[in-house]
Design a protein around this nucleic acid. Sequence first.
RNA 1: GGAGGCGUCGCCUAGUCUGGUCUAUGGCGCCCGCCUGCUAAGCGGGUUUGGGGCUACAACCCCAUCGAGGGUUCAAAUCCCUCCGCCUCCGCCA
Length: 430
Amino acid sequence: MIDPRILRDEPDRVRAALAKRGLSGEAVDRALAADATRRKAIVDFEEKRAEQKQLGKLIPKASPDEKADLLARTKALAAEVKAAEAAQGEAEVAWKAALASIPNLASEHTPAGGEEDFVVLEEVGTPRDFSAEGFEPRDHVELGKLLGAIDLERGAKVSGSRFYFLTGVGAQLERALVNLAMDQAREAGFTEVIAPSLVKPRAMEGTGFLDQAADDVYRIEGEDLFLVGTSEVPMAAYHSDEILDAETLPLRYAAFSPCFRREAGSHGKDTRGIIRVHWFDKVEMFVYTTLDQAEAEHQRLLAWEKAFLEKLELAYRVIDVAAGDLGPSANAKYDCEAWIPTQGKYRELTSTSNCTDFQTRRLDIRARFSDGEQQRTGPIATLNGTLCAMTRTIVAILETHQQADGSVRVPAALQPYLGGREVLEPIVKP
RNA sequence: GGAGGCGUCGCCUAGUCUGGUCUAUGGCGCCCGCCUGCUAAGCGGGUUUGGGGCUACAACCCCAUCGAGGGUUCAAAUCCCUCCGCCUCCGCCA
């Protein structure tokens, strides 16, 4: 949730931010009204409670006559206190709900508008020109079959559409990518994490995934658990209800987990291959840092993502995602999109978001700062960034580095992770 | 899954049977001050978190907070119920 103080002091700034996302400012008015109601209810309850405490103190010491009188008064008061407490509770819930309906404020540089209104920040590398090389590129489905790397038919048979098996060099490729990613992260000072992919509602809510993306989330039947769509969820909830020592920030984690997405509303989109699947594995960077450092850290996360894509020798571009496409938690988001030859366009491979204090407020995560001799607790920021999402990375590698005979050249940085292999050879003749 | 035990403001801990004197005890750690060649010791004070009032996001006052939520009661750390977590034993299992 956003900072209630900003809402109270600068409601117009919040309205402007909502407009940037293409949303009305109605939520601001609702939240302000709920805040006023809540404060009044709190004062009312506290006054009644204080009076009740005063009377209660007198009872044990009172003489029998006084006692009867006191009991009568305090009995009547008890009902009022109870009612006031209930009213306060309700007002608090209403206020929290109103506040939760407001997404994070978009940053200065974030373009206004929706999905199509992104700004291209840079293009790195040159998309390979297959016509100049004199052969028609095969798509990853075909290459996956030739290499014995991706088995989509059996994926569908066993689990349904949008499922796959990685086999042989496909499975090796995933392991190699996981190791390359984890090694890069560890060398950069990240703590390696294997995170649970089932979480309680609190973790889902806290990260904002039950707001707009609720339809995309798998729930476990008969249990209060959800399958995560990214390890951002368990990693954000990792420090929930904690007060961190500001001295230890930034806390940088590289978390591996499977990711599950229902892909509701994307029927008919990317139905071929493993571009869009219900399950994939991912190494995600997740950082807790100070609000001051959040923006600089966002740039660092982007730099680590770029470094990884460059190790894989992929052509890609970086976009600044528009406000309407940020998701509720982020105030800014950069996507790295790799060139997919057979699609003739750039496709999202990684994404990094600065969530400022939006998630930490929901999850009750703070830090203790010492300003000279004064100690204070205050909000901190979370950021996340994909280091390597296996399926799409495999697609980009296979398609980009394929050769006319159906073999695939292994980028130098990946070779040590594949037993020194320089080329993946087809096991089926093209 | 079964049986039992436990959960107190950083850590440890008293209090729970017998509800009000709990404004939660004491120790350790930490912070401030005093004392002191220096250090240690000693002495005094402070030390949960969230919120509200008033405001300068200070000081001060108030409310809540004894794992969480409900209940009983004029009154709950204390009595009752539900849930969560941890520990021990049994069963099952990677």
